[in-house]
Structures are given as structure tokens and as C-alpha cells.
Design a protein around this nucleic acid. Sequence first.
DNA 1: TGTGTTGTCGTAAACGTTTACGGAAAAACG
DNA 2: CGTTTTTCCGTAAACGTTTACGACAACACA
Lengths: 341, 341
Amino acid sequence: MASSIHDLARHLNISIGTVSRALNGRADVNADTRQRVLDAAAKLNYSPNQSGRSLRRGSTHSIAFMLQPHPGDQQYGEPFFIPFLTGLQAKLAESGLDLIVVMGAPGDYQQERLRRVVETRRADAVVLAWTRREDERIDYLTRVGFPFATLGRSRSGGKSYPSLDLDFEKAGAEAVDRLVARGHRRIAAIRPSLNLNFGYLFLAGYRKALRRHGIEVDPGLIAEGFINEAGGYEVTPQVMRSKDPPTAIIFNNDAMALGGCKALAEMGIKPGHDIAVIVIVDTPLCRYFSPALTAFRPPLEPMGRRLAEMLLASIPAFAGTEGARIIREVWPLELIARDSD
Amino acid sequence: MASSIHDLARHLNISIGTVSRALNGRADVNADTRQRVLDAAAKLNYSPNQSGRSLRRGSTHSIAFMLQPHPGDQQYGEPFFIPFLTGLQAKLAESGLDLIVVMGAPGDYQQERLRRVVETRRADAVVLAWTRREDERIDYLTRVGFPFATLGRSRSGGKSYPSLDLDFEKAGAEAVDRLVARGHRRIAAIRPSLNLNFGYLFLAGYRKALRRHGIEVDPGLIAEGFINEAGGYEVTPQVMRSKDPPTAIIFNNDAMALGGCKALAEMGIKPGHDIAVIVIVDTPLCRYFSPALTAFRPPLEPMGRRLAEMLLASIPAFAGTEGARIIREVWPLELIARDSD
DNA sequence: TGTGTTGTCGTAAACGTTTACGGAAAAACG
DNA sequence: CGTTTTTCCGTAAACGTTTACGACAACACA
């Protein structure tokens, strides 16, 4: 059933060495024999055993993406990653690499799982998402010298690895600009823990833009909640109950926005009518919510493709002739104007 | 850096055979030496090279899930799979197995990718989703004798493999019952290709229930569309323009429902007011849509856990002492009543 | 004809494990 | 004390590849 290179060799009456060389396109094999080997391989539908190959080669020819279930979302997950992974996989496939997605258990923030992947050498490199401001995964990977790239930036690990991030800072500022241009001066920001780097960046852009417009930053209008629906639901009333309540809210996350809008509805406040709402990262929920939420949309599939390129370019073994180089990019987010602001 | 079993053996002045036996918990090794081996392994943080191990053992100790990007949804993917995968991974981890998710390219319906996984022996078994009524993946896997389990049923492959499905037939019937009880007699069904098995099952339930209520099945009220938003948008006006238009619509898919509701809105018809709408499989979109859509919700995470159990039970090498058995289950869907019907 | 070059292939070692087998020492038994 | 059993460990083969090395033939060149 499982035809090996020995079967091929026996079938053709040549040595396994020649078969291997023929299959791997090496120069020192007669054009005629190569063709015979290729034909036989197709006929016996032989394909090389991955374990044997990577044992000998010392590389697995596959890249791992660490997928972490979003904390606190039991019922459904984010639709965010699939197009990103589609792009990632498409680009990796062009280089003959496999993408494998490693699921983390909901609790442990991947450390356990990541160690396992690295130590058992299950992949040649990993891709991380949900980067934190200080990220122990990045510390670990740089410490042991394992190749990786990140979706999102971090302060950990210096500039030693490729990263692709979205410009949350600019998005935060743009959101403020847009609201100010429409006459708002009291603008609230609802965000997750600053430990999540995109939360930190967003807040920085928000602050900077406010100051640029000569508006004082009011700590009472900034609230931190758990990064899910419950977090938004819980924290939104706090800013609304400040003595001088906001006329606009920027949510840093779609789930928090939905929870927040629920809280607003219960207070009789209607987004797009009584208050302006902007969401930093768009998902289908923003589009179909009523009113449809104005949001910034990330180009997920191209990001996946690009990060794959960047990762490969950073690894000498994969970066063609040009040698390894570390690329770090920050992409803009596109504002999709809808009905909520 | 990469410490091997040889390093361990040299460090302890014993043979690699003994080290391996100690690590693998075999009986014929002195309790004292075993302890020393374990300590040394922890100290040098040794963990076995996966390639070497699976080459020798002939098994990879990992299960592959074939993830197919939903056809036609470029911008975002379904939030459906993450909780399912969480359950799957949790249960597999309890048996020391790894879950890897293999991304398919958007076009090829996985055949290419699946062959690759099987032929290179990258996993010991695979899990399939989006089963079709006649499923070439299932045919292929049974033909080559590769272990697998499916989320969803199929006519292919007989009863030779474990499967876990939702009772779409019952859900379709329940939806009809509910609508009839509320006075509807003209009930439309909007569904994807019957090739997708859940579409087939849904329609069967729909038909059966209508007949049970003595209502004639009107082909003009049944429409088939592409399984995405555009499909629903395109096809919904067709049923609405029939000479005796429906007073209720059952959508077989959340994306189709959203597209359909958009079309209804453009015709000035308001779900929950002018027409009743029920969706067969719930997602967050149904919850946050306005009006919130009544839908049937699947228990995704438990389904993942259960399918993992069923898969393991079907493979002699993993099923403890009890021997292999094929389990097939069909789970009920729970109706979540909201505002659209 | 002798020497060097080129093209093609076989041999064998190596990657890191696991495990069947056998052997030596220790323990049990008469 | 001699024999048998048990306990423990080392040896070596095997899993399926890739690849360094050398061998051999053919060919070119002087």
C-alpha cells in the first residue's frame, strides 16, 4: 500500500540513490532514466514519506500557525483568521511548503503548545498572532533561535523577526479626526487591555489626535474592558455616566462594540442617532448590525500572502539567492463609512 | 541545541536503548535508572524528535482536520469552525494526540490537499467537514483504507466510518411546524445545492412536515442558490414574485439569509413584520441582525469533543482495550427564538 | 596508447527513534 | 552449592529518505 522508494527502485532495477536523485531533480542522472523514474512514480503513485524525508533533511517543509481561540468566546470564533490563513497558505504552497494550524487550548496562551511544536521540530517556522506588548512567546522563540514571524508588533524580541501589522495608531487618529470634523468634542474610547498591542497603539493614536485638535484627554472617557461582548457591555455604561457624557464612542474591537451597543440600547441611546459609533476592526457583524457600524477594514487575505513572503525572505534556507532579510511592515486600515456615525 | 536521545545517553553513561525504554515507560528498566533518565531529560529539556519517532513507529500521533474556505466568501470566513476545533483539540490532547489543521486552496475542494496528507503520511487520520451527498473525498479515503471521521453524513462510503451530524431534517420539520402553528401556509425554502448533504436533509424535513400538515409542496416556493450572501440575494426575489407569494421563508444558511433579507428590504418587506424568517444554522450574525433572526443553534464545542472520541474509538491502535467500533450519531439542533418570525 | 575529463550510477552512511534479541548479573529455589 | 528464573541493560537492526564518495565506462585529447 505505502509504496516506498525501495519499491520504485526494485521495479526499475536501479538503485534507490538514483531514484532519489531523479525525483529531486539533481543534475547527475541521465535524462532517460529520470523520465523512467518519473513515470514509474506516477504509476505506483509514489510520494515520499514525510517523516523519512524530514528526518534526513532536518527540516519539515512546513510552517505552523498558532491559532488561539479568542478568550471568552465559547459559542463562536472570529471569522478573522480564515481569509488570513487562506492567503498564508496560498503563498506558502507556491514554495512547496505546507501550512499547518496548531490549535492552542483556550487557557494557556500557547506557551505549552508552542514549546511542543518547537521542541519536537514539527515545523520549520511558526507564525504568531494576537501579539502582546510584552510577549513571552516572542521571548521564547528568539531565545531558542527558532524562526518565526508575527501578525502584529510587540516590544519583545527587538527587530530580529519579520512582522506585519495594521496601523491602529493611524486608525485611532483618523476616527477622531472624522468625529471632530462632524462636530464632536466628547469622544470616548473603549479598548481591551493595553497588554494587547493593538489596544495600546489605538489609544496612542486616539490621544495624539485629540491633542492635535486641542481637545483635552479626559480619563473618564477611556475605559478598559475584557475583549469580548461582555466586556463592552459592562464598561460602556461607565463612560456614559460621566458628568459630561460623550457624544461619540470609538470601539477598539467588534465584539466589544456589539456589547456596548446592547448597553446603549438598554439606556435608550441609539447609535447613529443619539451617539456616533466607530469600530476599529471590521467584521461581518459590523456590516449587518443595525445600524450598520462604520468600521476600519483590514485586507486580510493579502496580509496573509505578504506575511508568508516576509517569513520566507527571513529564513536563509528558503530565501532564494538574495540572502535573508528582515522585513517589517505596517499597513493602513481602510475606513468603511456606514450608518453609525 | 537540539538535544537527542544520544546526548541523554552519553550524559548518563547508559545506552540509548535504555533511555528510550525509560522514557516510554516500559517495564524492563530499573526504577532508579528511570528516575535518573527522567531527571536528565527535564534538565536538558529533551523531547523526542517527531520525525524520527514517527518514522520508526509508522504513526505520527496527530490527526488532521481539512479546513476548506467557504466558497465565495473572500472577506471573512465562518466563525463556525473555531469552537468545533477547540473541542476536537481538547479531546485529542487528552490522548496525547496533536491536531493539525490543513488549509485547502479555495478552489479544489480538498482532493489535492487530502491526497498529499494521506500519501506523505502526515497524519494518522483525518476529519472532514462540509460533507456532500456524494463525496469523492470519502470515496478516496475508503478506497485507500485511510482512517477518518466526518462532520456531517454522506451517501458515500457506506457505514464504514464514524460520523457526527446535526438533524437538519428534524430542524426543517420543526421550522415548518412552528410556522404553521403561527398560521402560515405559504412557506418558502431557500437552500444551497442538494449536493451539500445538509441542504438535502433540510429539504426532506421541510417537505415531510408540509405534507403532514396537509399542505401541498409548491415547487415555486423552493429555490436553490449559491451558498453565500449573493446566492440568497439573487434567489429570494424569485420566490417572492411567485403568483401566490410566501408569508414565511426558511433559510438553510445564515449567509443566504442575510443576502435574502437584503433583497427583502429592497422590496420594502420587513422580516418579523411583513414576513416570517427562520434560519437553520445560527451564527452571531443572526443574533445581531436587526431584527434578530430566529435560528437553530448547534452545540459546536461538544460536537468537536464527541467526534474526537468517535474517531479514536474507530481506530484499533487508539481504542484502548475495547477494540474498534464505528459510531454514528445525529444530534438535535436547538431552536433559539428571536424576533424574525 | 596513455592520460585526463565527463557523465552516470551504486554503495553506504546518516538523520533520531523504537524494539527484538541476547547476555550478564542477581535473585530465587531446590 | 548448583540450577533456574528474574531483572536489567546493551547491541544492532529497522523505519524511508538524502547525499558524499567513489567506481566505472565512455569519450576527448595528446
